[in-house]
Each structure stands twice: as structure tokens, then as C-alpha cells.
Simulated assay, not measured.
Amino acid sequence: MIRIVGWLALTLVVLIVVVPIGFRGAAALRETRSPQEAAPPGSLFATVDGLKMHYQVWGPQDGPPLLLFHGTASWAETYRDIAAPLGEQGFRVIAVDMPPFGYSERPANQDYSRAAHAKRVLGFADALGLRHFSVGVHSYGGGGVIEAAFSAPDRIDALILLDAALGLGQTEAPALPFASLLDRDWPRQLLTASTFTNPFMTGFGLRQFIENDDLVTAERIAIYTRPLNVKGTTNAVGHWLLSGLYNDERKSLAANRANYRAFTPPVLVIWGRDDTTTPLAQGKEIASLFPHAELAVLDGVNHIPQVERPQDVVRLIASFLKRTLPAAQ
């Protein structure tokens, strides 16, 4: 019995060590193409602070511009279910890949803080010659986009928040699990290759954020996994864990409630009633802070309303913009 237990323990240790190494090896074999080489045919790129940022466009050239920024492990194409219909309604919808995700180049300094994110948001608008624009954002991307909006409120025609993850009211820096290990390069890369950049985990991850598992089809999983062949993805996402997801943003513009109260452009907050990541109470609080905000709650929706109820999201956004943007009326 002792011998059997010993072998079981040894097997467990081997699995814990060998499996992540296997996933990291698979990532190295997979991540071989530059962003421009890996991007779909006809992809568009804009140079922002020396980085080529990938984006997709729907709708007429002269339509009111609506920039869409994504959350964790997403990219421009994941907005397709709402971007195309909004384009058909006359809006110029522009969805952007924000580093370290999608087909945009990653910064050499590996800075994915809210301030860096905000600089890229405004820099991208500059690259496209957009002085004024509406902007929508989902989940993790909310902190950087709100930072940009608070930095240049005169440029924002309207702000749309989809289950934004902001961490308002945090009194301590977010705790990075196994911080002593993940502060080191190889353990961090092993974890990242086993989770965030592991295509076998994509479907499982989506199901944690979507109420109806039937929506997590093979086609949708393929969309989310498509950019995982970009060179350096695992390394970049590993750095994002430190300077992005678990960065201490308590002094950021988006963490200060006073900045919300001073923001005068119209705001639409769309939230899933059954959100298990950013509960509805957070959405209600965010909406209450803005002086000109509307809150729309979608029943039967978890954390990704643009995927779970795209028709309702399109209806809400189109109605909101047509009421608030003179150019869209």
C-alpha cells in the first residue's frame, strides 16, 4: 500500500510538472508568425506609438464613428455579432485589437497598465484622424478606456460599458496568486501556456462567462483561438498578468469616483443580470456615479452580452446613439 501511494504521489508530481511544460512547448511550436502574417486576409493596421495595431471596420465611411475595445483574451472579430448590424444601421464601427491580445504588436516595455491602455486608445483615434468619437468597451478593457475618456472628455461623444470590470472601491492592491513564483519568467510562462493561451481551455473559459453553453460553438471557440499562433503571445500575456490584470490601479483616473461625477458625455451601461464575474451591483454603482447614465439589464445573461444577446445589445446601442448623437439623427 505504501508503495502504491508513493507511485501515485510521484505520478501526480510528474503530471503537475510535465503537463505545463508540454503546453509551453506546444505554444512555442504554435506561436511562429508575426501579427501581420497571422492576421486574416484584408486586415487593417494603424501605427500607434510605434506599434502596428490591428482593427476591423463595418459600416459606411461617413457614419458616426464608434470604437469598440475588448476584454481579456478577445480581439476585434469577437465583436462581429453586434458590429455588423450596427454598421448596417449607419454607424462606422471600428473594433480594435488591444495588446497583448489579437493581432496587434506588443510593446517592448510590456506595459499593459490602464495609463498605457488609455494612451493607445487615444493614439489609435489620432491615427485614424478621429477628433470626436463614441467608444464602447467590455470587461477588463473598461479600466483603460475609461482612463482615456477621463483624460480627454471633450473627444468622447458617448461612452458604452458592457459589464465593465473596474474594481471600484479596492482598498488593497489585487493579490497575484503564487506571486513569488509568477514574478519569475518560466513559472509565469508555464501557467500562461496552460491557461490563457491554451486553445484547449478556450471553450471551458467561455462557458464560465456565458449563461447558455449552447452558444459556445466550435465556430465561436475557433474565433477566440485564432490569434494564438502569433509569435510571443504566451510571453506577452504572461507580462500582462503583472502589469495589466494584477496591476495596482488604485491611483488611476478610473479608480476615482470623483472623475465619474465630473464626466458629462452620455453613458450607456449594459449589464447581464446573472453576471458571476462583475455582479450586477457593480453595474448599478457605476451607472449611479455618472451624471448622465442609463442602465440596461439583460435577463438570462452572464458576462458577455454582445455574444449572449447581440440583438438586444444592438437595439440598445443604436437607440442610445441615435438619441444622443446629433450627427446620427
Rank of each mutant, 00 (worst) to 15 (best):
F320S: 06
W186T: 14
V314E: 01
D111T: 11
P227V: 06
W58R: 14
A116W: 00
L206H: 03
V96L: 02
S34R: 08
A38F: 00
R226D: 10
Q282R: 14
T78C: 13
Y103G: 06
A327R: 13
D185C: 03
L44K: 09
D163S: 12
D274T: 10
A327M: 06
L298G: 10
R220K: 13
D312A: 12
F45A: 03
I223C: 08
V121M: 08
L128A: 04
A9W: 05
E37D: 14
L128Y: 00
R207D: 04
P41F: 12
N259D: 11
L159H: 01
Q36R: 13
G123Y: 15
G244N: 02
V216T: 02
I304P: 12
I4V: 12
E308I: 09
L67R: 06
Y224K: 14
I4S: 06
L8H: 04
K284P: 01
A222R: 01
T32A: 08
P153C: 03
L66E: 02
P291A: 00
A148T: 06
D312K: 11
H292G: 07
P85Y: 07
G50D: 01
L8Y: 01
A27Q: 11
V237I: 09
L253N: 04
G144R: 10
L15H: 10
L10Q: 03
T72W: 15
L67C: 04
P310R: 11
G142Y: 10
A73R: 15
H54D: 13
G203I: 01
R257Q: 10
G25L: 04
N198S: 09
W271E: 05
F320A: 10
Y260A: 05
S34C: 00
R30D: 05
Y246R: 02
M98L: 15
H70E: 07
I317V: 12
P60E: 00
P174H: 13
L206D: 08
